[in-house]
Design a protein around this nucleic acid. Sequence first.
DNA 1: ACCACATCCTGTTAGC
DNA 2: TGCTAACAGGATGTGG
Length: 284
Amino acid sequence: MPELPEVETIRRYLKEVLVGHKISLVPHLDERMVKHSTLDAKAIASRLRGQTVHGLQRQGKFLLLQTDGVEGLVLHLGMSGRLTWERPEKPWERHTHLIIAVGDGEMRLVDPRRFGRVAWVKNILEPGLSLGCDPFSHHFTGSYLAEVLSHRMIAIKSALLDQSLVAGLGNIYADEALFRCRIHPARPAGSLSREELGRLVRAIRHVLKVSLANRGTSFSDYVDALGHPGDNLAFLRVYARNGQPCVRCRHPINRMVIGGRSSHFCPHCQPLSIGTEGRFHAKV
DNA sequence: ACCACATCCTGTTAGC
DNA sequence: TGCTAACAGGATGTGG
């Protein structure tokens, strides 16, 4: 599933081929992908035609296409969405829902599960996505997390998936970050100490940075704008590794459902009981 | 305000 | 072997 590193990898490539070029045509936009939009599919297609692309920004897992004027297009890849750069003569793949023809190529959105979305917004710089801190922003600190998580009983894993708190994490990197800083995913968010929150912030930045350097994790669907998989799968230490030995202590990795999402962790390195880490082995 | 759960969707996998 | 059912999850909406 495309999370921050995957979306950013796609953005970096598409930006180069799109910016400065004119949209000649939007030959296809499936109405079913247009959600929470101020314009319907037809209107979006006719509005984009003839406009020049001025930028492609990212906020969390959203991509923002800047064209002429202050309005613009918001894209989200959902879970199975792929955004690729193709030759116009290449036949449409099954589940192609959006095609934007620019210069001598086409940007295509293919999304079998249709969890992704396309929306036209009145102000592309303030698209109203209600996103929390960018993990790489200097505002994203242990103090920030302490403030937004204080007295919250929600599992820290669920809190990390809440885009209004931290923008860009998904299931893979939430699990990986919690493993790195040795915090159990089911811990109540408000129970984490300031020291733990500081570790968590550094762990989140680390796992995202490593994945970005590897051009993302190709677990099931993800490929970059040229259709190439990312190289980060080999760097995952807990995600989808249930039953396999922990890379740190050889205990088998556990899987449990938290907030309706599968969570992977080492029960030895990430004890649930508080106040015992580093001194005792949790018994549970 | 906070939190749990249902919803959307289809390709893949587990189970009988 | 072949079918069906469960599963996967990002954002949003609902209801407690």
